[in-house]
Design a protein around this nucleic acid. Structure first.
Lengths: 196, 196
DNA sequence: GTCTATAGTCAGATAGAC
DNA sequence: GTCTATCTGACTATAGAC
């Protein structure tokens, strides 16, 4: 099932989350994945190739855990679903922390590695649209532009809070509280705009 | 006036903004600063020492341009001052872009370099308190905790937007618009909370 | 305090066998 | 597809003269 290259990408996500993009050593990655360095270059061409494919890999994985709802769970209301979707990225479970940490690293690296930008921009857009759609289910009458702007703010806030959490300055519980309040604030704003 | 070590730190901020922390080469830094590598190690001990001092340096510099208002400018109202303070970090003038970019890099690096965390946390706290104070001047009756939370959200949002801007996915004008709306949203929320 | 020269290390990448 | 062995270049850090 898990092909060799998948195995390498899983290890790469792990290593990036643990040591950062800057700390990613191809030889170390090889050890972690249980393969040789030669094989890594065979599959991904060079260091940048590893990063590009790892970015795609964590996006797929995030898309998967975003949509998976536990089988027995009762269906959530639109508002709960929105909160749930945003809070997903601020959890200190190993899988999510790994994804958030790697995502943050890749975002930061993209400032100086243009090859990463396009994929990152695409993935961000998908995320923003997903949140905008959820906002639209809470406030169906709000104009699309207002929903999109709110979604951009909320997702950018998640990234900002996530960075602070991971860099040690902000407790995860507090980050989650701040985010929930931001959701309330944005929803209140959409409400108010509609009634004017 | 500009001592040798200041000269080196100015160059370091420039290099980090241009190439990132990972891309900072001591030899390149030496060339940029017009000194030898030996001198850099003499002043800053090692690569980490360079990073730590550069972080302190850009904080001081940001504190300076935050407080400097042009001499002839008419005094701003509290609301305008708040917006002004937040938008400061989202400008594409060379000096600010350099500071924002270096700040973002150092923030991202701190996830994996514990030595940077303490200074970063302290600097963040100062910034948050400054914004909270400005919020308090707009809404003097709001409880301190609400002001602090709003300030944390707004500053985290600035960092999130700044990252997206620098990594190429978000136009600066749009980032500024989103931030202005966020200020309005947060102020509206403080207002609403007071009337309940 | 400042420079020059260099030691020592390590990481990215490739060649070639299997 | 996968591994072993290795090359080459680059970068940090130090020693020692001035």
């Amino acid at each position: 099932m898990a092909s060799r290259s998948t195995q390498i990408l899983e290890a790469a996500a792990r290593m990036i989350a643990r040591r950062g993009v800057r700390g990613l050593r191809v030889e170390e990655l090889a050890a972690e994945a249980g393969v040789s360095t030669g094989l890594i270059y065979y599959h991904f061409k060079d260091r940048t190739g590893i990063l590009r494919h790892t970015l795609a890999f964590i996006n797929d994985r995030a898309a998967r855990y975003t949509q998976d709802r536990p089988a027995g769970a009762e269906p959530l209301g639109p508002r709960e679903e929105l909160e749930h979707a945003l809070l997903l990225e601020l959890q200190d479970t190993p899988e999510v922390e790994e994804n958030s940490s790697a995502w943050g690293e890749l975002r930061a690296s993209a400032v100086f590695e243009p090859v990463l930008r396009e994929d990152l921009a695409r993935a961000t857009l998908v995320w923003v649209q997903e949140i905008a759609a959820l906002l639209g289910r809470v406030h169906p009458l709000s104009p699309a532009a207002a929903l999109a702007a709110a979604a951009e703010r909320l997702t950018a806030l998640v990234e900002g809070l996530s960075m602070r959490w991971l860099s040690g300055g902000l407790a995860i519980d507090h980050a989650r509280t701040l985010l929930k309040e931001a959701v309330a604030t944005e929803l209140g704003h959409l409400e108010a705009a509609r009634n004017s």
